[in-house]
């Protein structure tokens, strides 16, 4: 087996408060193979963005990694601090955020920002780097790249800016790109283009993508595997097609049913009652049990771990051999 590009083991993220620590991420583990695209999907408060921030060491204080390990290409990175972390973020992990303006410095031209990033990675002359930068912009679909490279970020439209951010994320040829809601702020007709560019360019360069989004449609288009997150835990993880067509966790199937379809007639949408629990009021046992229609006594008592089920892994007591019998009607 090849070493995974990214390996997260039992990650726990806590926010200390005066009433004791709140656990925002609670025992999340997953691997990301070279060249693979992993989708992290979930509703607000599921902890998907927090997982991304924890990996690149950008947790907002007072949030902190309480336990667990994060490995990048066989090297443990969760204990890196300061400059080591910045180097890691610049060279080995590329980042694309929801708002392109958070990744671009408004005071510098695109050329300056791209050339700087390229030269932290490769020891080449400015001229050489500029050529590469133009090539990158061409690759991400910026028309007339050789002319537009000297423009400032504000001179680009929203979609073009996000393309520039993708070029910037790929400039140092990272092994991993973390994309956190890269299309959420964009118009529908632009979203599709950006997703395509991101996927195409990463695949060509062999970079893995961790794609964090609330939009199941984007995941379906892009990802190889998907992790469905709920209340700081992974509810279900597996190949995209299997999860979409054959969801096993009651939360996943509820989530899929609540999305209005473009092709099917449906008078009523499936609705999951209630809302995601607040961190301060996390239910005991399975975090989803108060909203689950298939809940039984074991769910309220203890927390299910991920259980391998064919191609999926599911954290639900319904699939535990010892208890499943009791739950069947």
């Amino acid at each position: 087996m090849t070493t995974p590009v990214l390996s997260v083991k039992d990650l726990v993220v806590e926010f200390p408060t005066r009433h004791g620590p709140l656990t925002a991420i609670s025992g999340v583990s997953f691997d990301l193979a070279p060249g693979e695209i992993l989708g992290m999907v979930g509703e607000s408060g599921a902890g998907k963005s927090l997982t991304g921030s924890a990996i690149i060491g950008l947790l907002d204080p007072p949030g902190r990694i309480a336990s667990g390990e994060i490995w990048l290409q066989g090297e443990r990175i969760d204990q890196l601090r300061g400059d080591d972390m910045r180097v890691l973020r610049g060279r080995r992990v590329g980042m694309v955020f929801q708002d392109p303006l958070t990744s671009l410095n408004p005071l510098y031209t695109i050329a300056e920002q791209l050339i700087e990033t390229i030269r932290t990675h490769l020891e080449i002359s400015v001229n050489e780097a500029r050529k590469r930068a133009i090539g990158l912009l061409d690759d991400v679909g910026i028309p007339a790249a050789s002319r537009r490279i000297d423009d400032y970020p504000h001179q680009f439209s929203g979609g073009m800016r996000q393309r520039v951010v993708i070029a910037l994320a790929l400039a140092a040829e990272p092994a991993l790109v973390i994309a956190d809601e890269p299309t959420t702020a964009l118009d529908v007709s632009v979203q599709a283009q950006i997703i395509e560019v991101l996927k195409e360019q990463c695949t060509q360069r062999g970079a893995s993508i961790m794609l964090i989004t609330h939009d199941m449609g984007v995941i379906a288009e892009t990802a190889d595997r998907v992790a469905v997150m709920y209340a700081g835990r992974i509810a279900e993880i597996g190949p995209v097609k299997d999860i979409i067509q054959n969801a096993m966790h009651p939360y996943t199937s509820g989530l899929m049913g609540s999305i209005p379809s473009l092709t099917q007639e449906d008078d009523r949408l499936v609705q999951i009652p209630g809302a995601m629990p607040r961190l301060a009021a996390m239910p005991a046992g399975c975090a989803f049990h108060p909203r689950c229609e298939r809940v039984f006594d074991k769910c309220t008592a203890s927390r299910p771990q991920l259980i391998p089920m064919g191609t999926h892994e599911v954290s639900c007591w319904l699939y535990d051999d010892a208890t499943a019998v009791a739950a069947k009607p």
Partner: peptide
């Protein structure tokens, strides 16, 4: 319509969307 992601994975035929507003 072509820009909407195909969630049902039916392989509905779609054209590439071009340009911006």
């Amino acid at each position: 319509l072509d820009a909407v992601p195909d969630l049902a994975m039916t392989g509905r035929e779609r054209k590439r969307v071009e340009g911006e507003i």
